[in-house]
């Protein structure tokens, strides 16, 4: 057998095997089997991590260049108008399963107790960057708004979109009430740039980058993620099948 035909045979059988695998995962049963790994990781990580804090770094560790990713400049007219005015009229709405829905200005948010942390941002693709973030602990806002007992998830509605589909993300209450989970308005001592999510973005430090919602307009507490947009809890989860549990 010549080298060429052996290679062709090898490529052919490999291709067959692969298309076989691809065909298998197209079925709903296979999808639910594959998602077992995610469920196991979520339960195990919840158990071993508890309320432990993500590692914090020193000022010397801050990345000289912090890559921007995802949407870097929202195109909605309402957002652009806010940007023109330096986000002076930006309001954060906290509603859903809360006793007292709130609308907060940026000045009101800055007047609340703040937390500053130097943490590492990990993109699902594999790169990492370290930055310093200052903002309001989300737990403070949720307590202030009077979260109801049936609330299970915090949903972040954002001002950016992909071809008209709005960006959103969600985390469970354990993650939302974690002390390092903040709505940040300051990065490395400067007001948040548009590329990094001005004027307000989520930092949820024990999760991957796609959870760190930018351009946050509204935090909604819900009992279930079903019925919200695509129902899977986030734009990338709905659109590209990314795992809702982004702890690994």
């Amino acid at each position: 057998m010549s080298g060429f035909s052996r290679r062709a045979l090898l490529a052919g059988s490999g291709g067959l095997l692969l298309s076989g695998c691809d065909r298998i995962v197209a079925s709903p049963t296979a999808k639910s089997v594959l998602s077992l790994g995610e469920k196991a990781s979520r339960s195990a990580q919840r158990l071993v991590a508890g309320n432990a804090l993500a590692p914090e770094f020193s000022a010397a560790d801050i990345s000289p260049v912090f890559r921007v990713n995802g949407n870097t400049r929202p195109t909605a007219a309402a957002y652009l108008a806010q940007m023109e005015r330096g986000f002076a009229d930006w309001r954060l709405r906290v509603d859903g399963l809360v006793g007292r829905p709130m609308d907060l200005t940026m000045a009101q948010l800055r007047a609340l107790p703040q937390r500053t942390q130097i943490t590492r941002h990990d993109c699902v693709e594999g790169w990492s960057a370290i930055g310093q973030w200052t903002g309001v602990p989300l737990g403070l806002l949720l307590h202030g708004a009077g979260a109801l007992p049936q609330a299970r998830y915090a949903v972040f509605h954002c001002a950016d979109d992909f071809s008209g589909t709005p960006y959103y993300e969600s985390i469970d209450l354990a993650e939302a009430l974690h002390p390092q989970t903040i709505l940040a308005h300051t990065m490395n001592g400067q007001p948040l740039s548009v590329g990094h999510g001005a004027p307000l973005r989520l930092r949820v430090e024990r999760q991957l980058g796609y959870k760190q919602a930018k351009y946050v307009m509204r935090v909604e507490l819900v009992a279930t993620l079903a019925g919200l947009y695509g129902g899977k809890g986030g734009y990338w989860e709905d659109h590209s099948g990314y795992q809702w549990w982004a702890g690994i």
């Binding site: 995962v25 594959l34 790994g37 995610e38 099948g241 795992q243």
Partner: peptide, 24 residues
């Protein structure tokens, strides 16, 4: 190249699904 990856085309979320199930 696609010949040696799972799945045999660019799909990060699906590859992660396989990887973490396989890891367990």
């Amino acid at each position: 190249p696609p010949l040696v990856t799972l799945p045999g085309h660019y799909n990060l979320s699906l590859a992660r699904g396989w990887h973490f199930l396989g890891a367990w």
